[in-house]
Amino acid sequence: MADILVDIRGLRKHFPVKGSPISGRKSAVKAVDGVDLAVYRGETLGLVGESGCGKTTLGRLVVRLETPTSGEILFEGENILGYGGEKLKAFRREVQMIFQDPYSSLNPRRSAGSTIGEPLLVHGISAGRERDEEAARLMEKVGLTREQMGRYPHEFSGGQRQRIGIARALALRPKLIIADEPVSALDVSIQAQILNLLRSLQREFELTYLFISHDLSVVEHMSDRVAVMYLGKIVELAASADLYNRPLHPYTQALISAIPVADPGRMSRRLRTRGDVPSPIDPPAGCAFHPRCSRSSDACRDAVPALVEREKGHFVACHLPG
């Protein structure tokens, strides 16, 4: 049995929103709404889903930038939600996040070298000359040069800024990196450079990735397993090849058939989903996907389907899978 690094159990995050002025009833955005998910040591677990389905919130919960409404997160078997003080500080060394937007995630008044070396200082690992040397080494690791250490973010391109963000995440030698849309803001040619970098760093430092993206081709390329999220819930989870070859959930099927294929000879047979993504404040009863689904039944309107293992390692939450 593979070794579980992170075990997410029954995790919920509800953001309260102002009650309706008429009914006065309080409501909440159910950004993450009952997620069970294990991340194995050394793997890349891809997380896909439409905008607003809760991917970033799930990532922020795992690094403890957000406190869950309920549920637990075990890291190497220990519940991190009970952590405080020294334990929390130690945990923060183990888990790092790379952010979506390379433009706003760097402090414009800090040089590249100082940004990358900052975590070393905060965690009291190194200072002064030693810290600068480590920052320079990290810059070279991610394909920048040590001569660029004194430069500020605006002097770098988007792809270079993303490299700085990656170097900063690596500084503390973490075990887990949450990469939240690390290439979405980049052009295809630069995107390929960053994806290759993440892959080679994973091999060198034995990293585990939770790789978040709405680009299904990128996720397929990077991931060992893929989880599909819809309105705060995991609706399908499988090994990458299984998920793309034999998706069982109608939502996954629609997502995969909607990917534009860079191959004019092969016109895709597109499955239609109707309508827009519903509101996470007032999600549909039963299966949240049923109003857009092509094969919904009475059960789909009444009962929330549980995530069950249909084939070995292939989980799906659907009353009528296949």
Binding site: S189, A192, V218, A262
Partner: peptide
């Protein structure tokens, strides 16, 4: 440099890239 579904680059799994930037 585009990742294509079902066609992982052979061997080491790296994508071909255009070096450098615009």
């Amino acid at each position: 440099s585009i990742p294509r579904i079902g066609r992982r680059p052979a061997g080491n799994g790296y994508l071909n890239v255009i070096p450098g930037t615009i």
